[in-house]
Structure formats: C-alpha cells, structure tokens
Computed example of a mutant assay.
Amino acid sequence: MTTNTSDGLKAIVADPAGAVIGLDFDGTLSPIVPDPAAARIHPGGAEVLARLGRLVGAVVIVTGRPAATAVEYGSLAGVPGLVVLGHYGLERWEAGALAAPPVHPGLDLARTGLVPLVAGLDGVRIEDKERSVAVHTRQAADPWATLDALRDPVAALAAGAGLVVEPGKFVLELRPPGMDKGVALNAFLGERAARSVLFAGDDLGDLPAFAAVRASGLPGVTVFSGSLEIEVEADIVVDGPPGVLEFLTSVADAVESEARNGAGA
C-alpha cells in the first residue's frame, strides 16, 4: 500500500461524511458470467453496501449496464442514499427514480449492422442494452482471436453511426460519445463536495474513473478486483468481488471503530 493510499484510507475513516465510495458492478460486485443476464451481486454484497451507505457521504455505482438493471441484479434498492450511474453515466437512478436522455439515433444503425458482422461466428452474442449495444466473444472457441477480428469492422460501424467503441474483457460495446466513468465520477464528486474518494473496478472502462480519482486532488484510493485478462495500475489489488466486499467490510469496520474511539475520547 502506498503512502497516498494510506492517506486516502485515513481520510475516509477520519471523515466518512465527506467520503464518496464509487464502484463498478460486473467483475467488482458481481462475478463475471458467460451470460450477462445471469449476473447477480456476490452473496452478502447488498448488506455490505447498505452498511457503508449508513456510514459515508455517498455510495455510487458507475456501470456500463442500464442503471435499473444494476439495481435489480444487485438487490440494491434498499441501500441508503445509493446513486447508480448507468450507461457510463448517461443514466441516473436515485431513490427509485430514473433519469435518462433520449436514446442515441445511431443505435438503430449499429444494431442492424452488427448482425451480418457476427453471422457465422459461433459463441459470439449481441447484447442490446437499449442505450448501447455490445458484442461478446467470451463463449467463442478462441475469444481473443475473435475479438481481434471484430475490432476494425465494429469500429468502422460505430464511426458511421456516430458512436464510440468501449473495449473490455471479451467485449466491444458501441455507445454514445461524450461520457465515460471518469467524467461521471468527477461530476459526482463535485456535486457532493467530496473530501475523499475510493473507486473499485475491474475492466478497461474503469480506467477513466481511476484517472479521475488521481486527478481530483482529493485523498483517494483505487481498487482493482484483479483479472488475469488485463493489467491495471491501482493502489490496491484484490481477488474479484469477494475481495472487494472483504475490503469494503474492513473500511466499514475501521469507520465504526474510529467513531467509537472518538465518542469515548
């Protein structure tokens, strides 16, 4: 753990009301599964987040999924004060209400164009998220080679539709430009007048959020829920969703301990 990491954790523990805890969903709170529709939060995860929600300034999930889907798959509706920024920040779920912009017009062209691109590619599936569309190669016989073969044609299709490509672990996602997890997290930190920040993620799409933590000027911590498929520079590396939840539990324990010690002083 670096000195800066220690400073970030100390700031969260000493001043939890000023802390924002940011989290990705898939691969961070939920294990990666072959079928994205089968993803669910790791057992006990909702309880850990509810505990944190009562202790810190804000818990925010920043995910590529639709916000309401993350709430459903995570059983998160009961987490106190939770905000979910879906589609990399285009959508916002808070207190049961969903706010979202109109669907990008280029997505219809992307949906139509993807069908012939993946035709005949066994194990490749298209996931329609309404405000984005993703191509998954995880179930192909050679997922890396299939992903590489699709990169250029998918990029060309996205450019023609006015979209951008978000690469990830065995996935290429076509989505509207102008928003990423770093932009979304930075805006949320400003909104909440955050005094410290932690962000945990597991994929390439989380790198802008890690960069936002470092650029914020706040005491901060980045947590990578380790993966053999990519290398990410982060302050702390843990072993998947179980490691993330164990770490968050330790943060909650430290906050409660500090509060007890302060009350007894």
Rank of each mutant, 00 (worst) to 15 (best):
G8A: 12
G18I: 04
G18L: 11
G22Q: 04
G22S: 12
G22D: 05
D24F: 14
D35R: 10
P43D: 08
G44E: 01
R51S: 06
V56D: 01
G57T: 03
R65E: 06
A67N: 03
E72Y: 11
S75V: 02
A77E: 09
V83A: 10
L85G: 04
H87F: 12
H87G: 13
E94R: 11
A100M: 13
D108A: 15
V115A: 15
G123M: 06
E127C: 10
V135R: 02
T137F: 09
P143K: 07
A145G: 11
A145N: 06
T146E: 11
L147W: 08
D148R: 15
D148C: 12
A149K: 00
R151W: 07
A156D: 10
A159G: 10
G162Y: 03
V164P: 06
V165I: 10
V165F: 07
P167H: 15
F170G: 12
L172C: 14
E173C: 12
E173R: 09
P177Q: 00
G178W: 05
K181H: 02
G182P: 02
V183S: 00
L189V: 04
V197E: 00
V197P: 00
F199G: 06
L204H: 04
D206Q: 09
A209H: 02
S216I: 08
G217E: 10
G220C: 00
T222Q: 09
V223I: 12
G226N: 15
V232D: 03
A234V: 02
T249A: 10
V251C: 13
A252T: 05
V255R: 07
A259F: 03
R260K: 09
G264E: 13
